[in-house]
């Protein structure tokens, strides 16, 4: 009797997780419906806010025409390269300052103060130095991706449980083995916190880079939409940023789940 009840229960009631996921969709769906109604009833003129379907149509047509792929690809490439460069440097310097108090005293004040420089403030300097080509954009994004990874890794290494370091001490693990077995694994969760927020910042910086100096990319599409009074293009580009930003975050989470598996 008991088992019959247990078997039938999951079928009649959706699990809490499914319900939660469903709840998360309710408000965005209502917003889309409200958006559609506001445009159709003329509260917003179409040249300011397009119908939701018009945005989908625009994106679909551009995809068919083969225009969209190039823009998306170049933006994704910039973000990927910027993350690669910025995070590689961050891992090296974060490990160094995390491990060596001397390196920390020398370098950390510099990074702690430069992290507060707003992203857009770098743009003129980078344009002056590197021109309007790809290096300027990739480096700007690298700056964005650098700080969270550096800061989290450096403190993550310093904050590795003192109790576990003592275990390494008692059993005479050498410097290298202590690093491999205790310090670096212990700092991995912090590293991933840094990577996730670094990827988020990279998407923010790519918009800045592409709005100002680009002839291709999702950010360029936005600017193009403004110049040509095409709100469907602007909203479409925003949705693309939302989509790829979320996808990259999910990707990092997936990797984290696989690497930090204890």
């Amino acid at each position: 009797m008991g088992t019959a009840f247990e078997e039938s229960a999951p079928r009649s009631l959706p699990s809490l997780d499914q319900l939660r996921w469903g709840l998360g969709v309710v408000v965005p769906a209502l917003i889309v419906v409200g958006w559609h109604l506001l445009v159709v009833t003329g509260v917003f003129p179409p040249y300011q806010l397009p119908k939701p379907l018009a945005v989908v149509e625009t994106l679909y047509a551009m995809t068919l025409a083969g225009e969209l792929t190039g823009h998306v690809a170049i933006t994704v490439q910039r973000v990927a390269l910027g993350c690669l460069v910025g995070m590689s440097v961050a891992v090296v310097l974060g490990t160094l300052t995390g491990l060596s108090p001397l390196a920390n005293d020398l370098l950390d004040p510099l990074f702690q103060s430069t992290k507060n420089v707003p992203s857009l403030a770098w743009v003129p300097l980078f344009l002056l130095w590197f021109g309007i080509g790809e290096p300027a954009k990739v480096l700007l994004i690298a700056v964005g991706a650098f700080f969270p990874v550096y800061l989290n890794l450096s403190t993550g290494i310093r904050d590795v449980d003192e109790n576990l370091r003592e275990v390494a001490d008692v059993y005479d693990l050498g410097r290298i083995e202590t690093l491999q077995k205790v310090v670096l694994p212990g700092a991995l969760p912090s590293l991933f916190v840094g990577i996730r927020s670094g990827v988020g910042l990279a998407w923010m910086f790519v918009v800045a880079a592409e709005l100002i100096a680009a002839s291709q990319g999702i950010g360029y599409l936005m600017n193009d939409g403004r110049v040509m009074s095409r709100p469907d293009l602007i909203v479409g580009a925003i949705l693309l940023f939302a989509l790829f930003g979320n996808l990259s975050d999910l990707g990092v989470k997936e990797v984290e789940h696989y690497v930090v598996d204890w």
Binding site: L164, E166, V167, P185, D261
Partner: peptide, 15 residues
Amino acid sequence: NVGMVFQEPRLLPWL
């Protein structure tokens, strides 16, 4: 030449 058992097990969670 000592082994030590601490108050908490202090095992490395990733191993």
